[in-house]
Amino acid sequence: MSWYVVYTKPKWEKKVADRLIGIGVTAYCPLITKVSQWSDRKKIIQVPLFNSYIFVKIEEKDRNVIFGITGAVRYLFWLGKPAIVKEKEIKTIQDWLSEPNAVEIVVEKWQKGDKILLESGPFVSQSAIVQEIKQNHYILVLESLGCILKVEKK
């Protein structure tokens, strides 16, 4: 079985994942904890790490099952075929989200376009390219995961 990326309606990620799990499909919606501010209060909520995307582990022949779930729109495609996510990459995301504390990263003299190797934290040994340098953070592109990482400057 392979992990596929399913595109969902906006704000439907958790609902679609729960419904897929309910019918016996292995689904994963990575969540992060966030403090949300309203005019009269603050609230701690869990939001999806990837907006409008969830991961499903399913046999190739059973891929159409997800279309019976309200909120599931389509599969994400790469080079004309459904995008497949490696088990190792799913495990990296799970490990990163299970870290109890934020990881401190020390940054010294990176420049836009530099290719670096992350030496600590949940993405250890991952290569990245410095895409953007701002006053209080860096934007890194993790090549193997195809995602963007924001690193706060200390």
Score class of each variant (00 low, 15 high):
Ile32Thr: 12
Thr70Asn: 13
Tyr7Cys: 09
Ile54Pro: 05
Val73Met: 05
Ile54Glu: 01
Lys81Asp: 10
Gly121Pro: 03
Phe67Trp: 00
Ser39Leu: 13
Gln126Ala: 06
Trp110Leu: 15
Lys15His: 10
Lys11Val: 07
Ser39Gln: 13
Phe123Val: 06
Ser52Asp: 13
Lys86Ser: 14
Leu76Cys: 10
Lys11Asn: 14
Thr92Trp: 06
Tyr138Gly: 01
Gly146Asp: 09
Ile32Met: 13
Lys112Cys: 07
Gln111Pro: 00
Asp62His: 12
Lys112His: 09
Tyr138Thr: 01
Ala17Tyr: 07
Leu20Tyr: 07
Val35Met: 10
Pro30Ala: 06
Gln46Lys: 15
Pro10Gln: 10
Trp3Gln: 03
Leu97Gln: 02
Gly146Val: 06
Gln111Met: 13
Ala27Lys: 02
Arg74Phe: 00
Leu20Arg: 01
Arg41Thr: 06
Arg19Cys: 10
Glu104Val: 15
Ile45Thr: 11
Val16Asn: 03
Val16Phe: 01
Pro48Ser: 08
Gln111Tyr: 11
Lys15Met: 12
Gly121Glu: 00
Glu143Trp: 04
Ile139Gly: 08
Ile148Cys: 12
Ser36Pro: 00
Val16Pro: 01
Glu99Ala: 11
Arg41Gln: 09
Ala128Gly: 09
Lys11Cys: 09
Asn64Val: 06
Lys14Tyr: 05
Leu117Ser: 08
Glu104Trp: 10
Tyr28Cys: 05
Trp12Val: 00
Gly80Glu: 00
Val25Lys: 09
Glu119Asn: 15
Arg74Val: 00
Lys88Trp: 04
Leu118Ile: 08
Lys112Ile: 14
Leu145His: 09
Leu76Thr: 10
Lys154Pro: 08
Ile116Asp: 07
Gly22Gln: 05
Phe123Pro: 04
Glu132Trp: 06
Asp40Thr: 13
Leu142Pro: 04
Gln46Met: 11
Gln126Lys: 14
Ile93Lys: 00
Thr92Phe: 11
Val151Gln: 05
Lys115His: 12
Arg63Asp: 08
Tyr4Gly: 02
Phe55Asn: 14
Gly71Trp: 08
Ser120Gln: 11
Thr70Ser: 14
Gln94Phe: 12
Val56His: 01
Gln111Ile: 13
Glu13Gly: 05
Ser144Asn: 14
Arg74Lys: 11
Met1His: 08
Val6Cys: 02
Gln46Pro: 00
Pro48His: 05
Thr26His: 13
Leu31Gln: 08
Glu13Met: 01
Val103Arg: 12
Ser127Val: 10
Ala72Leu: 03
Leu76Asp: 10
Val151Tyr: 02
Lys11Trp: 01
Ala17Ile: 04
Ile66Arg: 00
Asp95Ala: 07
Ser52Tyr: 06
Leu145Thr: 04
Lys42Glu: 13
Gln46Ser: 15
Gln135His: 12
Val103Gln: 13
Arg41Cys: 07
Ile45Asp: 03
Ser127Leu: 09
Lys91Val: 09
Phe123Ala: 06
Ile69Cys: 03
Glu108Asn: 13
Pro100Asp: 04
Asn101Glu: 14
Ser120Phe: 01
Val5Lys: 02
Lys9Trp: 00
Gly146Thr: 05
Glu104Ala: 13
Ser125Trp: 11
Trp110Cys: 15
Ile45Ser: 06
Ile93Pro: 10
Ser2Val: 04
Val124Leu: 12
Leu31Thr: 01
Thr26Tyr: 14
Val151Trp: 08
Glu108Tyr: 14
Ser120Tyr: 07
Ser2Thr: 10
Lys43Tyr: 08
Tyr138Glu: 06
Asn101Phe: 15
Val103Gly: 09
Val56Leu: 05
